[in-house]
Design a binder for these strands. Structure first.
Lengths: 145, 145
DNA sequence: TTCCGTGCAAACAATTTGCAATAGA
DNA sequence: TCTATTGCAAATTGTTTGCACGGAA
């Protein structure tokens, strides 16, 4: 069924007048196969593991196209890195500053804060676009502050 | 009195065995004079306006040293940029995706969410380390979604 | 046939690093 | 004096771009 998910994404791409190529399929497969949170670089690595002939720039351009088509989104994690995942997968992210782990948490958790910012400041916050940094349980146990 | 703030920071640096130089003083002055939210690059520009002889790498190294000494912190703003400010200046940040404006909001606003994450997941979130992205009031009026 | 996507290599931006010279404490 | 800092230039890292060719529709 993950194969089906891949085809669905590619179908949308095709509908919009885009073309489906080996590289693009490989990028989508990589995103479907992993639970998400892969940095662009990781996508490149994973794609090239199966398709050494697919160039890195193709991966970057594919991610861009997929995002433009609304099929994929990226989330910023701390130090400039971004993680990519299929759209619709609207989980929120926590990123551990120590071990780098990115954890998914259910959506809705920040609704209250977002509402508050909207009402008090007119600011439309999109917390799903970033990973909230901090220290995960495992790391804080390993080395308490 | 901002001059005094500068001396206070430099004094701590000196206490720790560090040395106070023209470049370091200029970096601290830049941070004291502005309300904060300057990217590293902006600090370089501002420092060099008054001291063209201070090299960019010196500014980067100084920011690093100041952070190590706990005198300065940085906050990540969306696409990889980071803004620097004096420690103790613990305001939270919102960053508009459209116009790039960085707005300060009072601390404490995220306490509830942070508590929740701590209790339910054992995750010590530090929302002050990032700017929450979104669209500011002015921009959402200019071009509603 | 069309023209979208691709590989390639070079450009890029922002930051970092190695090293010898300089200048605080 | 002693060694933390600096300037400089070169190396890095991660991503983007221009261009001519190749392949999906």
């Amino acid at each position: 069924m993950s194969g089906q998910a891949v085809e669905e994404v590619l179908a949308v791409l095709r509908e919009r007048g885009g073309r489906v190529t080996v590289g693009r399929r490989a990028v989508v497969e990589a995103l479907v196969e992993t639970t998400g949170h892969m940095r662009a670089e990781d996508v490149v690595t994973r794609v090239q593991a199966g398709h050494p002939d697919v160039h890195a720039s193709t991966v970057y351009r594919t991610l861009e196209s997929l995002e433009e088509a609304g099929l994929v989104t990226h989330t910023h994690v701390g130090h400039g890195a971004a993680v990519w995942h299929l759209a619709g997968d609207d989980r929120l992210h926590l990123a551990c500053d120590r071990c780098g782990e990115v954890v998914h948490i259910p959506p809705g958790l920040f609704d209250e804060v977002e509402d508050h910012l909207r009402h008090s400041l007119g600011f439309e916050a999109t917390l799903r676009h970033i990973a909230v940094p901090g220290v995960c349980m495992a790391c804080s146990r390993a080395a308490p502050p």
